[in-house]
């Protein structure tokens, strides 16, 4: 049997002390990591259980909300402050996985969950650069209906699977990190890396760096934010495309907008081109379409995922129509 050590951290200092050991991994709800260990994709020498760390959800001095990394996904989704002030986040979480998995999954684990690319999981039978650098990528010429069209490279086209992260990306979330060398904070959009020629390096985290929490800034337009996920079945399926959005409109003109896409990118995809294109434009389908197309212009479709470009454009338009219709 593959042996590994297990330690339960009682506080952050404890966690990072264990966490800097070689080949140690933090363990949240284990809904992803334990599967990866079973499939031998992940072979940690030690697990540091961080589910005892802060799981509180509380307001910040600047009017935002701070969520402890150990908070279970379901608790975040049902928290009144989240539902009222950041509904896109609650909806995104509820659109993901199943109730059982959401009850186990933590915020930290959700941020760092790994791709669902089937070749990545198939250790014995498939080649994968993300899992085994330099081996090749069986998805690029293979079954890639679920794969990304944005942020891809010639080494990897795997989609970042999280729903929650898409909402966080749209809502300007900040990730708080701790390390033996000290603490730091990063915008969520700076946490994940596009694969480039090192798909195995998935985030900017240093070895042993711990996610301690996520902070949502005060963002009044987020109170009317939403999340729409398009999938092959009504529940328990990863996104073909998803959209998190918030818009502020005044006199028919887009004053401010937040837009992020899921299912299409190798990272949770903040749609900045689309946002720039939209700001100052008259609301309406033509502007929404131009914005969505601006974002998808860089898409590199493969044999089976080309539909995602059109689907993303349509879903963005649909979501923006819905938000601005309500606005009217």
């Amino acid at each position: 049997m593959r042996r590994f050590d297990y330690a339960r951290a009682e506080d952050v200092a404890d966690a990072v002390r264990y966490g800097t050991r070689r080949d140690a991994l933090y363990l949240g709800g284990g809904t992803n990591l334990v599967d990866l260990m079973r499939e031998t994709v992940a072979q940690p020498a030690a697990l540091v259980d961080v589910t005892r760390l802060a799981s509180t959800i509380e307001g910040t001095e600047t009017g935002g909300l701070r969520i402890g990394a150990a908070a279970r996904n379901s608790l975040v989704a049902e928290h009144p402050a989240v539902r009222q002030r950041y509904p896109a986040l609650a909806r995104a979480i509820l659109a993901g996985a199943s109730a059982q998995i959401r009850n186990m999954a933590t915020v930290g684990g959700n941020l760092l969950q790994r791709t669902r690319c089937a070749y990545f999981y198939d250790v014995e039978g498939s080649r994968c650069n993300r899992r085994s650098p330099g081996q090749g990528c069986d998805a690029i010429e293979g079954l890639n209906r679920g794969h990304a069209v944005l942020g891809t490279s010639s080494s990897c086209i795997a989609t970042h699977p999280s729903d929650m992260c898409v909402a966080l990306a749209a809502l300007d979330a900040v990730v708080h990190l701790a390390h033996e060398d000290g603490e730091r904070s990063l915008p969520l959009t700076a946490l994940h890396r596009v694969p480039g020629d090192r798909p195995d390096i998935e985030t900017v985290l240093r070895p042993g760096e711990l996610v301690t929490g996520v902070e949502l800034p005060r963002l009044p337009l987020a109170a009317r934010s939403t999340y729409r996920k398009v999938r092959d079945r009504a529940s328990y399926a990863f996104a073909l495309v998803s959209v998190a959005a918030a818009v502020e409109v005044e006199a028919g003109i887009v004053q401010d907008v937040r837009l992020a896409l899921g299912g299409v990118g190798t990272t949770p995809w903040r749609a900045r081109h689309a946002e720039e294109t939209l700001r100052g434009q008259a609301v309406g389908e033509p502007a929404f379409r131009r914005a969505a197309q601006a974002e998808l212009a860089a898409a590199v479709p493969r044999a089976h995922n080309g539909f995602k470009v059109e689907l993303a454009v349509r879903t963005v338009i649909g979501v923006l129509n819905e938000l601005t219709r309500e606005e009217a």
């Binding site: 498939s126 293979g142 079945r233």
Partner: peptide, 25 residues
């Protein structure tokens, strides 16, 4: 059942990836 045409390998041998109707469907 998704089969990789190059290798004849079934690529979705799990209930997460082989979709059957869930309650909501």
């Amino acid at each position: 059942t998704q089969v990789d045409g190059r290798s004849g390998r079934i690529m979705n041998p799990s209930l997460a990836d082989y979709h059957v109707p869930a309650h909501a469907d």
